[in-house]
Nucleic acid binder design. Structure first.
Lengths: 199, 199
DNA sequence: AGATAATAATGAACACCGTTCACGAAATAA
DNA sequence: TTATTTCGTGAACGGTGTTCATTATTATCT
């Protein structure tokens, strides 16, 4: 045998991530149980802890996949040959669409919490850049006066504002925006923000 | 003895809420354990379930208190004899301050989730009105064209946008706004929103 | 190829959690 | 006081994530 060792290890990891992803998509983060995942993946309970440090690290890898898909969706939504306001509006609507169509996996990105005092690894933190990557260019057109660092910070704020509206609409049981009004409200928010930012 | 029955019952409830509130403030929602709370409250483990349906309902009462304090803080922050933009700015900064000074209890308002399929009681849902109560008046000045219902909805959106920025800044381990920049970014967001909403 | 060493998978056991429930204590009613 | 209803008690239950001695598998060496 050649590198069977490594291959089997990677295969087990993949099966576990697949199973966890399916379980989260079906039943949410709270519905994810170590025994279910390992049963679905066709391995023993203890095998999970030979492949990953713990269940939280496995969830991290599921979130990693979701971020990649979300990043691709946002990237694909950027219209060509349009002004910054149109780009921002399109990005916001793409974000809404992704959250609606991948609700539980998207929610897992923001509701999952590591145990207190434990930080996510750098490679995973870096993956979150896709959330603001496409906002920076149109924002720079609206605010050419801002230096790169302030621009990056403002992009985070713009994302967080849109995200907040989507999050409260989809997960809160109070002050909730009805789903059918969500695209319209997000559009109004982005419109107001871009107009206010314009000059 | 007169109404000792009712009195003792209410006293037990209060002690449990006090203990849970202190535990959440000290260790967050995840650090809240039934055994700790009942030990702090000076009662047996099972007593919790004579006073409340379950641990989630106890948390609900803690959140109820937090909402009342937050509502009072927002109310007190409304400046008199100022324009709508100044009112919105003041409310946003008051929200930031409350979140910073009551971080874990504030976070519990939005991270606590009831079991799937179980809804919070109406009396508790109604308490969340304080989050948008003070936004409606200044917003109505900025947008006198909007009918009351749309105004209420837009107020939810404005709140959610500000809340999203604060939430990601304080709880996310990625795309995080540094805390010292949070007031400035929120101010910029509200400024942009109110300018964009103005006409 | 066969023997040996290193490694990984197994699943029963562990520690801890929220919740329940038979029992005894206490407060009300008779 | 006595009877009755109500409530607090804490051991026990079911379910959780995680560990660990044991077994099975793979790689290494002669």
């Amino acid at each position: 045998m050649r590198n069977n060792r490594e291959e089997q290890r990677e295969d087990l990891k993949k099966r576990l991530i697949d199973a966890a992803e399916a379980r989260i998509a079906a039943g949410g983060l709270n519905g994810l149980k170590a025994r279910d995942v390992t049963a679905d993946a066709g391995c023993a309970l203890g095998a999970l802890y030979t492949a990953f440090e713990d269940l939280d690290r496995l969830i991290l890898h599921v979130n990693s996949r979701t971020l990649a898909r979300l990043g691709a969706a946002l990237q694909a939504a950027v219209p060509v040959g349009q002004g910054p306001k149109e780009v921002m509006a399109a990005l916001a609507q793409a974000y809404v669409s992704f959250a609606l169509q991948n609700f539980r996996l998207w929610a897992a990105l923001f509701t999952h919490r590591l145990p207190e005092g434990i930080e996510a690894p750098d490679w995973h933190r870096a993956e979150h850049a896709v959330l603001i990557a496409n906002i920076i260019a149109p924002l720079a057109e609206l605010r050419p006066d801002l230096p790169p660092q302030a621009l990056q910070q403002r992009a985070r704020t713009v994302f967080a504002a849109v995200h907040g509206v989507v999050m409260l609409a989809l997960t809160a049981r109070f002050v909730a925006t009805p789903r059918d009004q969500l695209p319209g409200e997000v559009a109004a928010l982005v419109e107001a923000m871009t107009r206010g930012l314009a000059d």
